[in-house]
Amino acid sequence: MNLADRSAIFLSTLCMIHCLVLPLILILLPTLTTLTFFSDERFHTWLLYAVLPISAFAVVLGYFHHRSWLVVLITSMGMGVLVTVAIFGHDVFGEQGEVIASVLGSILVAYGHIINFKARRQLSQCHPVSARSTS
């Protein structure tokens, strides 16, 4: 799996964990509320700033290899959901809706990158790069 796909999957997973686990941790361990960076909406924004360019780079690069619009569609839908949630947040979706939409967007982004990786790998197995002669 290439580095961009791995990074995007990691960041999407981190976002899901943040959305699902952090509220429970803050309830169980209220002293952690002093770690405002992780409980703040800015954490989502910084993750988004990391995910968007990495995802776009990996998907565009992958598309030039496998020409699969499905990868572009799924990943773009996920990024669109994440951007929408970041812009409108719990003011529009409510707190639970924000978590559900963020998790859905993260799953779509991660799934798109998994498909991207598999399509690139399948193509490279069908058309291996020929070795150059060193003589």
Rank of each mutant, 00 (worst) to 15 (best):
G94F: 13
Q125K: 13
A119P: 00
V103K: 05
G112E: 04
I115H: 03
Q125S: 13
I115P: 01
F93C: 05
V103Q: 02
K118M: 11
I87H: 08
L123M: 08
Q96P: 03
I107H: 03
G89T: 15
G97W: 07
E98S: 11
Y111N: 03
G89C: 13
I114V: 15
G112K: 04
S102G: 12
H90Y: 13
V83Q: 00
V103L: 06
L108F: 08
I87A: 08
F117D: 06
C126D: 11
N116D: 14
G97N: 12
I114W: 14
T84I: 05
F117T: 10
F117R: 09
I100V: 15
S106P: 06
D91K: 15
G112N: 05
I114P: 03
F117Q: 11
V103D: 03
Y111Q: 02
K118L: 14
I114R: 10
L108M: 13
G105L: 01
V85E: 09
S124N: 07
I100W: 10
F93M: 09
S102Q: 06
T84F: 03
V99H: 03
K118P: 00
Y111K: 08
G94V: 13
G89N: 13
Q96T: 14
Y111A: 14
V92L: 15
R121H: 10
Q125V: 08
T84L: 07
K118G: 01
Q125N: 12
S102M: 05
R121K: 13
P128Q: 07
A119E: 12
E95M: 13
F117L: 08
I115M: 10
V99G: 00
Q96N: 15
I107G: 02
T84Q: 04
H127R: 08
S106Y: 03
I115D: 02
E95V: 15
I100Q: 04
V99C: 02
S102P: 01
G97S: 14
N116Q: 10
L108A: 07
V83G: 02
F117N: 05
V103H: 02
Y111M: 10
V83C: 04
Q122W: 06
L123D: 04
H90I: 12
T84V: 07
K118Q: 14
H113P: 01
I100G: 01
H127A: 04
L123I: 05
I87S: 05
R121T: 06
G97F: 13
F117I: 06
A110L: 03
T84A: 09
L104I: 11
H113V: 03
S124A: 12
G89Y: 12
I107C: 11
S106V: 07
S124E: 09
V99F: 00
S124Q: 11
S106A: 14
S124K: 11
Y111D: 02
S124G: 02
I107P: 00
I115R: 09
G89I: 13
G97Y: 11
V92E: 09
L104P: 00
F88W: 15
D91Q: 15
V92I: 15
S106L: 04
Q96K: 14
L123H: 07
I115C: 04
G89P: 08
S124W: 06
R120I: 04
Q122F: 09
A86N: 11
I100S: 08
F88Q: 12
R120Q: 09
E95Q: 14
N116P: 06
I100K: 09
I87R: 10
V83S: 06
L104H: 00
R121E: 13
N116K: 09
V83A: 10
G105V: 00
V109F: 02
V85T: 12
R121F: 11
S106M: 06
P128E: 10
A119R: 11
